[in-house]
């Protein structure tokens, strides 16, 4: 395979060795969350970036996966780890039902519908207290006290998700997805059932997002509707991860995930306690500025416009060396 090249191996090696080299649980935690966002961002990107169906409701699948794992404990009285098996499939079924309704709409109308459905899910999880415990949320005892098992599980999930999405985009399905993104009517007149392939893309996307949700429940040990069904913490964050990294590229969301999580953490901790506390309030503002910057100067994201960035860099150096000669 041509795709397994040295940078990829290097990245995998660095990530695999990271917890051994960095003993701090704090940094391990940040990397675990970043790896989880690699999964969600990549899953969102398959639907939005490759198939052209921009979802503002990925919290639906994340929350469904997380609650599937949580309800395993509170209702079925089995381990939340069963959620790792069930979370994906349950989210997939939810995705299928939502697609059945929302894929009647196109473009911005589809996006608006996903916002609405996302809020419906959040409200149901809040109000249906007999089933979900409502705002009190679900608290479980984590299996491991060490971060290391969670770290490698998250790394495995991220690698699995990227590999599957890579293979899908190189397959016949991937071409159908892109054809639908480029022109749905033309794709249909080529004999591609837009509804069927959009549903397929959504199913893969919701499966991985649900898996990430189930992982979150197991790792954090606590969920409530305001966090896992959140429009801005989950749905919007998934979009930002995709846009910053590069929509419609394999490596865009992984890069976007690390940038967004590190940035969020830097601000949340007021630059690791170096700056006054009010700075932490500014993180949403900075996200906004970052999005404006990326859309204005790198509309295809960091990975999508990588050649542009490289050109800029080499041009700078040429200029520097030219001025040095003078």
């Amino acid at each position: 395979m041509k795709s397994i090249n040295w940078p990829t191996i290097l990245v995998i090696a660095v990530l695999a060795l990271f917890p051994a080299v960095v003993p701090s649980d704090y940094y391990r935690h940040i990397f675990i969350i970043a790896l989880m966002w690699v999964v969600i961002g990549s899953a969102w990107n398959l639907l939005a970036g490759y198939t052209g169906q921009v979802s503002f409701g990925h919290a639906i699948f994340f929350g469904t996966g997380a609650y599937t794992a949580g309800l395993c404990v509170t209702k079925l009285e089995i381990s939340a780890w069963w959620g790792m098996l069930l979370g994906g499939p349950v989210a997939l079924v939810v995705g299928l039902l939502i697609g059945w309704i929302c894929f009647r709409l196109r473009g911005p109308y589809f996006a608006l519908a996903t916002i609405a459905v996302g809020e419906i899910f959040r409200l149901i999880a809040t109000v249906w207290r007999d089933f979900t415990e409502g705002m009190e949320g679900i608290l479980i005892i984590q299996t491991f006290r060490s971060k290391i098992p969670y770290y490698y599980l998250a790394l495995f999930l991220a690698a699995l998700c990227i590999t599957v999405i890579y293979l899908v985009t190189r397959s016949k399905w991937g071409f159908y997805f892109v054809a639908i993104r480029e022109d749905q009517d033309a794709a249909e007149s080529m004999g591609i059932s837009a509804f069927r392939y959009k549903s397929l893309s959504l199913m893969i996307s919701s499966f991985f997002t649900g898996l990430a949700g189930a992982f979150y429940m197991n790792y954090m040990g606590f969920i409530d509707p305001q966090v896992v069904f959140s429009l801005h913490y989950i749905s919007i964050m998934a979009i930002l991860v995709g846009i910053i990294g590069g929509v419609g590229t394999i490596w865009g969301p992984p890069v976007g995930a690390f940038i967004m999580v590190l940035l969020q953490e830097t601000f949340r901790s007021s630059f690791f306690g170096l700056l006054p506390k009010w700075i932490s309030e500014a993180h949403i503002l900075v996200f906004g500025l970052l999005v404006i910057f990326v859309i204005r100067y790198m509309a295809n994201g960091i990975i999508g416009d990588w050649s542009k960035i490289q050109r800029l860099w080499s041009k700078d150096r040429e200029l520097l060396s030219a001025s040095g000669r003078n």
Binding site: D183, D185, A186, S189, M190, G191
Partner: peptide, 24 residues
């Protein structure tokens, strides 16, 4: 008949304004 089946019966539509897949 749904639009994606039309090509199977042997009709091919060259749409107005081309409608190619520009990124392919």
């Amino acid at each position: 008949v749904p639009p994606y089946r039309i090509t199977n019966v042997g009709i091919s539509h060259v749409p107005e304004g081309r409608q190619l897949f520009p990124e392919m």
